[in-house]
Amino acid sequence: MALPRALIEPKRIYLEPAVRAYPRGREVLERFPAAEQVEVDSHWRIPQLFEDEALAEDWLRMKRDVLVLGVKKGMTMRPNGRSADFIAPSSSNGCAMACSYCYVPRRKGYSNPVSVFVNIDDITCALARHAAKFGAKPEPNTVDPKDWVYDLGENGDLSVDATVSGNVRDLVAAFRAIPNAKGSFATKYINPDLLAYDPQGRTRVRFSLMPERMAKLVDVRTSPMGERIRAINDFVRAGYEVHANFSPVIVHEDWEAEWRELFAEIDDALEPAAKAQLKCEIIMLTHNEGLHRVNMDWHPKAEAMLWRPDIQEDKTSQNGARNVRYRTPWKRRWLDQFLGWMRERLPYCEVRYAF
């Protein structure tokens, strides 16, 4: 199914009054002059979005029709150690895509439109100060052998955000000037505008990849898998570091054949330069009962693959949330099988972490 012409075409923009004082805020408002503007006290407290359980049944329309603008308050850099050394203050929250396993809706209630933060200069300055404070990275780790890496898109997809504002362009530009740090974000959306941002090797893009058949079921409103794979070459040529994010790995009866086919497609498509720098993350599916209930209102077919009490067990995440994951002995065996299939076809792809 083809993606719509624009994933976000806001008919209504909720905004904090201070947004109009920022150049980025005025820029976004001018970009969507026909949208109704509704002032709110806080981008986090919009009852007509976050407290209306019925909106779960109108999930996709809300993502297209609603945009939220706010001012980022906290500039905390949280340690990570997996995808990045630190989680940066986010320049946005929420996503216009609708992956049925995504954890972000667990935090934002029954509607999950994109929220863009207009004080991007505060965010880039905070990043520069933090990297300067830490100085040179003392030793290599699994995140990066040389640089401190900051995850820029924990709560959304920056490739989609770049269709709304210039925040992503400004973040990429900021890291060109920080000698000991890189930015990093995962994406499922191919935005060719990013190819002109001149990252100079200082931004890492992690393309999320899974078998096409599964993606058509659970990766709603995302770019087709073949486009994501082919884009790896384009982004490497444009100066990005490009990794693969095999996530989530969803176990089902035909998963071996599907993943072997995907690995073959990647190997056949990638140019030598892309293969030479390719690394990956592997994340087995975790799920959540609250999200399961929401999904049953708008996309129950996906839950047949995601909600599997017969092979899952309770798990408490690092942030204290109660989730479910594949049962421990089986998960270890399945992950070892997955790694074996991958090494057969992609022996050059270093695994940065897998869990």
Rank of each mutant, 00 (worst) to 15 (best):
E139K: 08
A34L: 05
M296N: 11
A264W: 00
R176F: 07
S92R: 06
D52W: 00
V294K: 10
P79E: 08
L346V: 07
K188D: 06
R107M: 15
A173P: 07
T142E: 08
V205M: 15
T187V: 12
L262Y: 00
K133V: 13
A276V: 10
E139S: 14
E51Q: 08
R24P: 06
W259V: 10
R325A: 13
A321V: 06
D254H: 10
K301P: 11
E212Q: 15
H243C: 13
E350A: 15
K275G: 02
I190R: 03
D314E: 11
Q312G: 02
A131V: 08
P192L: 08
A18L: 11
K137D: 04
T222E: 12
S90R: 01
P105E: 01
R169W: 08
F235D: 06
M77Q: 14
Y103P: 04
L262D: 05
K137H: 04
E39M: 03
N155K: 02
V251T: 10
R327P: 09
L285P: 04
A181W: 05
L29I: 13
H252A: 09
W298M: 03
R64S: 14
G183R: 01
W298V: 05
K133Q: 14
V114M: 13
F86E: 07
E57S: 14
M214P: 05
D297W: 04
L285F: 02
D254W: 02
L346K: 00
W307C: 13
I232H: 10
K331W: 00
V236I: 14
Q277N: 09
I8S: 11
V149G: 10
N155E: 08
M342G: 04
M62H: 09
L60M: 08
F185L: 06
N233M: 09
N319Y: 00
D268G: 13
R293T: 12
W298N: 04
S83K: 07
R20K: 05
D193H: 06
D268S: 14
P248D: 06
R206T: 05
S115R: 05
K279L: 05
K146P: 02
Y150W: 01
L270R: 03
F338V: 04
C95F: 02
N141R: 01
A136W: 00
V168E: 01
R12K: 13
I178T: 03
L335Q: 04
R230D: 15
A177C: 11
L29T: 06
A181D: 12
R213L: 15
Q337Y: 02
E154W: 01
L278T: 05
R176M: 09
V294P: 04
S208M: 05
I283S: 07
V160K: 00
C280R: 00
Y14N: 07
D297Q: 13
N80D: 14
D85H: 15
N80T: 04
P17M: 04
R78I: 12
V294T: 13
M225P: 07
E265G: 07
V40I: 07
R332W: 00
E303G: 11
A132I: 01
A131C: 10
L346W: 00
D151S: 13
R129S: 15
S159A: 15
P138M: 00
P10C: 05
R237S: 14
Y348P: 05
H292C: 13
W307F: 11
G70Q: 03
M296S: 12
E39A: 08
R5S: 15
Q37A: 08
R26A: 12
L171I: 09
Y326E: 06
